[in-house]
Design a binder for these strands. Structure first.
Lengths: 228, 228
DNA sequence: CGCAGCCTTGAGCAGTATCAAAGTCGGTGG
DNA sequence: CCACCGACTTTGATACTGCTCAAGGCTGCG
């Protein structure tokens, strides 16, 4: 039921599967150039302002992408899970990273070095078009996101975030994300987030068990989100 | 002085010059396929949800791109001026328009039909890479925008918008934009915008002449914006 | 010169941030 | 195994920000 709401990626977190973009034979041909990397929960993969040296494929775990704003407050604008690609934007635009990426869980990455990635897309128009198509699509997602930030209130944004996070974590018994990260995703203070969660619990829209959030009444939740 | 602040596109409105991306010879070869279109101030070029049939190049005038949100309120996320391209995102992602575009002034467009545009980029890797590079760059701009919406207050966002608009309109004696459009760009109500403008006038940061805004003290304005 | 549309001002209220303090949980070392 | 520490979560009180509604003013144009 939730998935039907999110069948069109626009309402979901962006990110796509590079292994569907890169044909198997090409992927196989670069196997020996791929560098595996392990990072623990909480560690930072790359920092805003540093120089990209390749593209990462997240093989295991979950990460957040965020930009640092006023008084160091994190603005989380992107969550990525298994098989997502990251780091390609700033590599392609030849700029330093415009944001940071950190692990929400223990993670395994495959690093495709800069030169390998560039020659790969240069020599394969199919990959090129996939990239272009996916990036074009992502624009719609970003527009939607900035609209939500500009026009929806904390209660509505929180309800939306719960739907998104539940889909993102994709477990059967709800999801767990620190209140700090959650509030930085919603774009509010920790305290305001908690108050809304408390209200939603009282209204029997969600359950909270040891700070884990479980959707209890998705129809009500959609109504609270007030989206579209 | 302002331009130095905006020398890096990230802090400015996005959009780039298609005529720099498409080499002259290629552009010349499709001249006969380009369809010129005139629209009056206030007219809509395309509506959210409709099917793209080509790419537009804005030859003359200024346009706003916006998505419609709660209670029909416009969220303006993009302004485009002469020589900007629009409509390529949804054409490339093969989706309906994720937003609308309307004229802020009388405009002249060049419409490049869908097939012509697609074959053009298919047969020219240089254009392809330019597109990819520019779209990658635009991500940084969008991230910055959504961060501003999420973390900055109305006063700060208004100050930022004045800097951006002054650069965008690029006239020597300030700029004029309806309070409604301006507030939809800042992400606030018309009344709140007006109150901030009033304050900034009293603080001698800006001048307002018949609702036209002129920057009077750029250093103070930057300080008010509180950006970076 | 009068109308329509835009702009401005005021008052009151709802929403949200901030600060302070107390409660809870998980992990660690004795 | 238990006590304690530190980090995270929750609650409460208060102040401020920004929205809405209402009314009045201005301006440009027919």
């Amino acid at each position: 039921m939730i998935n039907s709401l999110f069948s069109h990626k626009r309402y979901s977190f962006i990110g796509f599967d590079i292994y569907k973009i890169i044909p198997d034979d090409i992927l196989f041909s670069i196997t020996e150039n791929i560098i595996p990397m392990n990072l623990k929960k909480g560690q930072v993969l790359f920092y805003e302002g540093t120089i990209p040296n390749g593209v990462y494929i997240l093989k295991k775990g979950k990460i957040k992408k965020y930009a640092t704003g006023l008084r160091g407050k994190e603005h989380i604008f992107y969550l990525l899970k298994e098989n997502g690609i990251l780091g390609h934007h700033n590599l392609l635009s030849k700029e330093v990273y415009s944001h940071s990426a950190a692990c929400l869980t223990d993670c395994l990455f495959h690093l495709i070095p800069k030169e390998i990635f560039l020659s790969m897309i240069e020599n394969n128009q199919e990959i090129f078009f996939s990239l272009l198509k996916n990036m074009s699509h992502d624009f719609g997602v970003f527009i939607s996101d900035s609209k939500i930030m500009a026009q929806y209130n904390v209660r509505e944004r929180t309800a939306l975030s719960i739907m998104k996070l539940d889909e993102f974590f994709d477990e059967n018994d709800g999801f767990k994300l620190s209140r700090k990260d959650h509030s930085n995703l919603v774009g509010t203070s920790v305290e305001s987030l908690i108050r809304v969660l408390h209200d939603l619990k009282n209204e029997e829209v969600i359950d909270i068990k040891k700070s884990k959030i479980i959707i209890r009444n998705i129809k009500k939740l959609i109504r609270v989100a007030n989206f579209e």
